[in-house]
């Protein structure tokens, strides 16, 4: 097992983590590590670090380790943990805050499929203001190499009228891009 000097870690990362607490509004210092979150988490069985340990790592300043974990991206944001947590820790909000940081810093190579999915989703959202489901499905199948996995569903989906060929559109086609720009300006400077 890798040795970690926690005093050093906190010196290095304490400030970033305090900023994370402030921006996300999730005060991980309140967590007393009962483990209830992980016990009920539907995705824990595929996570590399369980949810309560993500919090413990943050409490200890292990920021790099958290950024490298796939857990924040595996979290389904189902809020089972948050609903049950005796200390009212909003774990899904925390996981999402970590995602936003890693996504915008382009530190998502350890979660390749997620990167493809979210960038495709956002691409269609910016372009049409609504999600072009066929476009999304094609992007995913081509870029994740999933083509053979799901090809059995593609044709029936089309036959059953479940996928529209033409993309949807809103009238004001620059609306979303402009909203995103303004959001970026306002949020700019955040972690």
């Amino acid at each position: 097992m890798k040795e970690v000097n926690l005093t050093e870690k906190w010196k290095q990362n304490g400030k970033i983590i305090e900023e994370l607490i402030e921006h996300s509004g999730v005060d991980i210092r309140n967590c007393y590590q009962c483990g209830k979150c992980s016990a009920g988490c539907p995705m824990a069985f595929v996570m590399d670090v369980s949810p309560n340990r993500i919090i413990r790592m943050l409490q200890l300043g292990m920021w790099e380790e958290v950024l490298q974990s796939r857990t924040p991206w595996i979290c389904a944001l189902c809020a089972t943990c948050y609903t049950r947590c005796p200390r009212d820790i909003d774990l899904p909000k925390l996981m999402d805050a970590v995602r936003v940081i890693t996504y915008n810093k382009n530190m998502v190579d350890h979660v390749k499929n997620e990167k493809i999915f979210h960038s495709s989703f956002m691409k269609w959202l910016y372009r049409y203001g609504r999600i072009y489901e066929l476009g999304l499905v094609l992007d995913l199948n081509l870029k994740t190499g999933n083509l053979f996995n799901d090809v059995e569903l593609g044709l029936p989906m089309v036959l059953k009228g479940r996928l529209d060929f033409l993309p949807p559109r809103i009238k004001n086609k620059d609306l979303i891009r402009r909203m995103a720009e303004r959001a970026r300006q306002i949020e700019g400077g955040q972690a």
Binding site: D96, R99, N104, H118, M122, L125, A180, A183, E187
Partner: peptide, 18 residues
């Protein structure tokens, strides 16, 4: 009229405000 996508499943992982 002209409702827009709610941003699920992705916008929240890109920008909280958006």
């Amino acid at each position: 009229p002209d409702w827009v996508c709610c941003g699920a499943s992705s916008a929240h992982s890109v920008s909280h405000l958006l």
